[in-house]
């Protein structure tokens, strides 16, 4: 059974079909890339999967359950983690605190525990701090835990945002352009991190524009154009697909 299953997913903004009749599935453990020209509906798709938008029609099944219409926080609790295109961290908080906040959904301490500072509350705080340190080590930011995250480089913020989502223990991670806005020399390190996350057992869906990167790391690729799934397959299959070449380069260039 696939981990994530989308069937007939449609989102219309007024008369504009941002995503239209999309059907695909994501297998446990794979790295699936979603590519397509600007405006193809990639980010809209992520917003549908994470409950930011309600689909106009269609069904999203995750881990065997129908999650269509879940609220964003509920989809995270079910195991769908997500990073944003515009890197988002809590800039006025320290790096370590960002990852602590990322674990909020696991917190059991209530108001009473918080104001009395019960033993259980202290233990939980210690445990969450430890886990935050482990996650920072995992993404390679250990030496920056006390820095203000807003002062980090774009690349380091991308790493941090991944650590923050991983803190929620997602089963699948939706990465919206994890290398966007990052220096060319730093891209390799981020790709390495994405692969490392996949090796740790997290399924990955990736939106990317850098084709060489997509071709090298993806297990499978889905190509969207005008909200429609125009091709699907291994990197080699997709690379040879005429429709794809047409969508990317324009009809004139097709030999």
């Amino acid at each position: 059974m696939p981990l994530l299953e989308v069937s007939g997913l449609t989102k219309a903004f007024g008369g504009l079909m941002a995503v239209s009749g999309l059907t695909f599935s994501v297998q446990q453990g794979e790295l699936l890339s979603i590519i397509g020209p600007n405006g193809a509906g990639k980010t809209t798709l992520f917003n549908l999967l994470t409950g930011i938008y309600r689909p106009t029609s269609g069904i999203i099944r995750f881990d065997g359950n129908d999650i269509t219409g879940c609220k964003p926080y509920q989809s995270v609790r079910r195991g769908i983690g997500r990073t944003f295109q515009r890197t988002t961290v809590f800039g006025w908080e320290k790096v370590l605190d960002n990852v602590i906040i990322g674990q909020s959904l696991h917190v059991r301490t209530g108001v009473w525990g918080a104001i009395v500072r019960t033993g259980a509350a202290r233990r939980e705080e210690r445990r969450i701090r430890e886990k935050a340190r482990e996650l920072l080590a995992f993404v390679g930011l250990s030496d920056m835990e006390q820095r203000l995250s807003g002062n980090l480089t774009e690349e380091a913020q991308k790493r941090l945002s991944i650590a923050m989502v991983l803190a929620a223990d997602p089963k699948v991670l939706l990465l919206d352009e994890p290398t966007g806005g990052v220096n060319l020399e730093e891209i390799g390190g981020l790709i390495e991190l994405v692969k490392k996350v996949q090796r740790s057992g997290v399924t990955i869906c990736l939106i990317e524009h850098k084709m060489r990167m997509v071709m090298s790391i993806s297990d499978r690729i889905i190509v969207l154009n005008y909200g429609v799934n125009i091709a699907e397959g291994t990197p080699a299959e997709v690379g040879a697909n005429e429709e794809v070449i047409k969508a990317y380069l324009g009809a004139r260039r097709v030999a």
Binding site: V76, F84, F90, E93, A114, I115, R117, E125
Partner: peptide, 25 residues
Amino acid sequence: LVHSLIGRTFIAISHDENLAESLGI
């Protein structure tokens, strides 16, 4: 309260409510 794990979620909401929600809060 604000320095507890609950308080951190308050502060997170004040900084960026959408990001807080996307982290499962």
